[in-house]
């Protein structure tokens, strides 16, 4: 068994500990005896058919985001859509999440087109949403919760073609209006939560790994790991989220 991760723009999109998400996927595969490779996909690099089982993209600053948007449209977007329709998994955070939607509309200047994996769009907001987030989610393991930290001013609105990752109980989420947080379409997960997200949300990590393996024809359930520290860290984050809001 093996899994190949396509790490999109690691030099440009890696704010707020995004690296920890890739590290978590790698470790949780290896702890189960599943071999993992990570390919870095930089500007100009093509996305080859069937090569990557999980795509990952983090957040970035404005300037980086504009460079990445151009490369996604010109080089990778079509192929990424095709791979996801074909069963590949993806996790995209914050700026990466916005670029996987249909477009980003700033206050002034040109609309930044996204690649439309998610039926969602983002508009610039006046207020910055910063803080711990707790959301009810089907990918949240036994407790049914995902936790993380959000820091964004963009407001994202979901269309009919995707479902939210969860419904916030603490924090802003997608737009601070409809309580939705993130988006899920097939094996692709988009979210504003960093933290890093995956270490404290092993349910989401294992969802991505399972999708990746099933695309390769392995339908066995994943072996359970000892997640004591993961769950204690999550409890601490939830307690902190309630206290600091």
């Amino acid at each position: 068994m093996n899994v190949r991760i396509g790490y999109l723009y690691p030099d440009l999109m890696n704010i707020y500990g995004d690296h920890g998400n890739v590290l978590t996927l790698v470790r949780r595969c290896r702890w189960r005896g599943i071999a993992v490779d990570v390919d870095e996909l930089k500007p100009g690099d093509p996305v080859l058919p069937g090569r990557h089982d999980i795509f990952f993209m983090g957040g970035g600053q404005d300037r980086e985001q504009v460079m990445v948007a151009r490369d996604l449209i010109e080089v990778k977007g079509e192929a990424i859509n095709r791979e996801i329709e074909d069963g590949a998994a993806a996790l995209v955070i914050c700026g990466g999440y916005q670029l996987f939607g249909r477009f980003y509309r700033p206050f002034d200047g040109e609309e930044l087109p996204g690649i439309g994996v998610f039926d969602a769009y983002t508009v610039a907001g006046r207020k910055r949403c910063i803080g711990n987030v707790v959301a009810k989610s089907a990918l949240g393991g036994k407790a049914g919760l995902v936790v993380g930290f959000e820091n964004h001013s963009g407001k994202t609105y979901l269309g009919q073609g995707c479902t939210p990752l969860g419904m916030v109980t603490v924090g802003c989420g997608n737009n601070a209006e409809d309580r939705t947080e993130g988006a899920v379409h097939l094996g692709a997960v988009g979210t504003y939560l960093h933290g890093s997200l995956l270490p404290k949300n092993p349910g989401v990590a294992d969802f991505l790994i399972e999708r990746a393996l099933s695309r390769r024809g392995h339908l066995l359930p994943l072996r359970q790991l000892d997640d004591t520290i993961e769950l204690r860290a999550r409890q601490a984050a939830i307690a902190r989220a309630k206290k600091t809001h």
Partner: peptide, 15 residues
Amino acid sequence: NDNIADGRDVSWIWD
């Protein structure tokens, strides 16, 4: 710690 003076966001430890 994650008090205001430390930064509420502890994601930096992953960097």
